[in-house]
C-alpha cells in the first residue's frame, strides 16, 4: 500500500539502521586484515582522522540544527558504520578485479578516506532527510513537531570535512556499486550530487581541477593557462 512521506522516511531509516546492525563501530576482522596487508598499516591514521572529523561534524551539525546537537554524534556513528562497510566491499571488489591484496597507497590516502566518509554521512543525512533537494532544506521532526529548517543540504558536508567536490565525486559511483541495497531515493540523491558537482561545484575557482588540467596539458607555458572563468 502507498506510504505517507513520514512512513516512507521512517521505513528508509529503519532499513538503513537494520542494514548496519551487523556492522561494527570498528573495522571488521576482514577490513583489519586489509589494513595489516598494507606496506604501511593505516589503522591509526584512520582512527585519528575519524576522531577529528567527528568533532568537526558534531559541532557544525549542532550549529545548523540547534539545541538537539546530540543528533550529530548519532548521525556520525551511523556514517562510520556505513563507511567501514562500503570500504570493505570496495576492497573486496578491487582485490577481485586487480588480483592484489596490498592497497597501501589507497588506504594511506587521506583524501580517499575523507571522500568515502563524506559520502557515507551524506547518505545518512539524506535518509533522515536532513540533506534533501526536494524539501529545500526543511525537515520534519520525527516526533511530529514543527518543521525545522536545516542547512545540511549538499554540499554542506564538503565544507565540514574540508573536501573539494572534485575528490568527493570520485567515490560516488563505486559507493553505489558497493551497496546494491541503497534505495532509489538515495541513489537519486547521490546522482543529483554528482550532477551538481559536474555542472557547477567542480569548476569553482579553488577547485583542484584546474591544476590537474594544467598538468595534463603539459603545464607551464603562459599562453596555455586559461582563467577559471574560461
Amino acid at each position: 500500500p502507498p506510504q505517507t512521506p513520514i512512513r516512507a522516511a521512517m521505513t528508509s531509516i529503519q532499513q538503513l539502521r537494520g542494514d548496519l546492525t551487523s556492522s561494527g563501530d570498528q573495522p571488521s576482522t576482514n577490513l583489519a586484515t586489509y589494513f595489516k596487508n598494507c606496506t604501511v598499516d593505516p589503522m591509526q591514521a584512520v582512527l585519528l582522522r575519524l576522531e577529528t572529523l567527528e568533532q568537526a561534524f558534531s559541532q557544525r551539525f549542532g550549529q545548523a540544527v540547534g539545541p538537539r546537537c546530540t543528533l550529530g554524534c548519532q548521525r556520525f556513528k551511523l556514517g562510520v558504520r556505513l563507511y567501514y562497510k562500503i570500504m570493505e566491499a570496495m576492497l573486496k571488489s578491487e582485490e577481485k578485479r586487480l588480483s592484489v591484496q596490498n592497497f597501501s597507497k589507497l588506504l594511506n590516502d587521506s583524501t580517499f578516506h575523507t571522500s568515502l566518509l563524506a559520502c557515507a554521512l551524506e547518505v545518512v543525512m539524506a535518509t533522515y532527510e536532513e540533506s534533501s533537494f526536494k524539501t529545500g532544506g526543511y525537515n520534519h521532526d520525527a516526533a511530529g513537531g514543527d518543521p525545522v529548517k536545516t542547512d545540511l543540504c549538499f554540499p554542506w558536508i564538503l565544507d565540514v570535512v574540508d573536501l573539494p567536490a572534485f575528490d568527493f565525486y570520485k567515490v560516488i559511483e563505486s559507493f553505489i556499486k558497493a551497496e546494491p541495497t541503497l534505495s532509489k531515493d538515495i541513489v537519486k540523491h547521490l546522482e543529483t550530487c554528482e550532477n551538481l558537482i559536474m555542472e557547477r561545484i567542480a569548476w569553482r575557482t579553488d577547485s583542484p581541477l584546474f591544476e590537474l588540467l594544467k598538468q595534463e596539458h603539459g603545464g607551464g607555458a603562459a599562453d596555455q593557462v586559461e582563467t577559471p572563468a574560461s
Binding site: E94, L98, K105, V171, E173, S174, I176, L182, V187
Partner: peptide, 21 residues
C-alpha cells in the same frame, strides 16, 4: 541500479580514480 548510469569501464575502479594503479 535504479536507472543510475554507471560510467566506469571494467578496467576502471576506485584505485585508478585515486591514482593508485
Amino acid at each position: 541500479s535504479h536507472d543510475y548510469h554507471f560510467g566506469l569501464e571494467d578496467h576502471e575502479g576506485i584505485s585508478e580514480l585515486f591514482d593508485c594503479d
